[in-house]
């Protein structure tokens, strides 16, 4: 474990970023953007936040590539379930 991965400076930077994009998420709502754009924006912000936490706080970014893949790739499967359910919900139900 090298010292760099756990440097305080990086954590503070990430923390500030997290706060900044969380606030950005709030500001966008009253702007009255079209629904899909608003949703897209919100989801991108969530992914960015998640990415920051996973990459720096959980320092996955500094782990071996094989570990990164073994953690992230399986998540595709649960996303597939969500996509199938949303598709099913919007096209067929009730």
């Amino acid at each position: 474990m090298s010292k760099q991965e756990h440097s305080k400076k990086v954590y503070i930077k990430v923390w500030i970023w997290l706060l900044a994009i969380t606030i950005a998420g709030f500001i966008v709502s009253p702007l009255g953007l079209p629904g899909w754009l608003h949703n897209l924006f919100i989801v991108i912000i969530a992914l960015m936040k998640g990415g920051l936490i996973v990459a720096y706080f959980m320092h996955l970014k500094f782990e071996r590539l094989s570990l990164i893949y073994s953690i992230l790739l399986p998540l595709i499967l649960i996303v597939a379930l969500a996509v199938a359910l949303l598709y099913e919900g919007t096209t067929r139900f009730l």
Partner: peptide, 14 residues
């Protein structure tokens, strides 16, 4: 959590 959220998504759109 993914399953819960996926179910939530389905409720939301239906």
């Amino acid at each position: 959590f993914g399953a819960f959220l996926a179910a939530y998504g389905l409720f939301r759109v239906t």
